[in-house]
Computed example of a mutant assay.
Amino acid sequence: MTASRPGVTIIPIHGHTPKIHDSAFVAPGCTIIGNVEIGADSSVWYNCVLRADVSRIVIGERSNIQDGSVCHCDPERPGDPDGSPLIIGDDALIGHMAMVHGCTIEDRGFVGLGAIAMNKAVIGSDAMLAAGAMLTEGKVMGARELWGGRPARKMRDLDDAAIAGMRIGVAHYAENAKHHSAAIDVAAKA
């Protein structure tokens, strides 16, 4: 499941080695640490850091973590025996330079460019956290909601066209990952 990938730093720690599905694309420059699981056809783009040294990070199928994003989690604490793992469902989009930390992003959730989602926050299915927004600890976005601002609050419900646009984005990243993977293979052989 996890194989050596050119230009990617994969670091086992505390008895956990990242598990990356063979069909997942992880771009050069990424660092994947500890208890990380990346599902089929997902993509982690250039210069991302996924650090699961104190809890776990799970990324479902066909999800993408775009360039420069940081993914982390928090350990158990007194009164919080579960800690704050980072759980990302299937078909999720995480925009460039986002920071997702110990939260849950349900299937088809969207995190905009430079947005922040904090511990125990939830981004519902087909929901969108706007670019630059900050979803504070424990806030829960319902399905098909758009939240924005710092701190983020509900702005409106998303219509079918917005949902369709997010699904097009998922398909684009799944396809584009195949092209980048092939280009990296060619460059490695040159």
Rank of each mutant, 00 (worst) to 15 (best):
V70E: 04
M99F: 02
A52F: 00
K120Y: 14
D159I: 06
E175A: 12
R56S: 15
W45V: 10
W147T: 07
V70H: 06
D67S: 04
A143D: 14
I123R: 06
V44P: 05
L93E: 05
I184D: 13
W45L: 06
I65A: 00
A117V: 15
C73K: 05
R153S: 15
I57K: 10
A98W: 00
G148V: 01
D185Y: 13
P151W: 00
I168C: 11
W45I: 07
A52I: 04
A117Q: 07
G124K: 08
D74Y: 09
I65G: 06
P78K: 15
C73N: 07
I163K: 07
R156Q: 04
T104S: 14
V122L: 13
G102P: 08
V54K: 06
R153E: 08
G79N: 05
I65C: 07
D157F: 11
N64L: 03
D107R: 05
I94S: 02
A121D: 03
H96G: 01
A171G: 10
I116A: 07
N47L: 13
S125Q: 11
R150C: 10
L113P: 00
A115M: 07
N64I: 06
E137D: 13
A164Y: 03
V186Q: 09
S181D: 15
F110H: 12
D90E: 09
R156V: 06
G102R: 00
E145V: 12
G148Q: 03
H179R: 15
R150H: 12
A121L: 00
D157A: 13
D82W: 11
D160E: 14
I163T: 08
V54N: 12
S84T: 13
D91F: 08
M128W: 11
D74P: 08
M134Y: 00
A182K: 04
N47D: 12
A143S: 10
K154D: 02
V140D: 02
F110A: 04
M99P: 00
G60V: 05
S125C: 03
I65P: 03
G124N: 04
A183Q: 11
L86T: 12
A161Q: 14
D82Y: 13
D126N: 13
A187D: 11
L93F: 14
K189F: 04
R153N: 12
M134I: 14
L129G: 01
M97S: 14
G102I: 02
K189T: 15
V100F: 10
W45Y: 02
L158N: 06
R51L: 06
H101A: 01
I168S: 14
V58T: 14
I184Y: 14
V49R: 07
D90L: 01
T136A: 12
D74T: 12
R144C: 11
I87H: 08
V186G: 03
S42N: 01
R167A: 13
V54F: 09
L146D: 09
E145L: 11
R62Y: 01
G149L: 00
R56M: 14
G89D: 04
Y173C: 03
P78F: 11
G102M: 05
G142P: 05
A121P: 03
H96N: 13
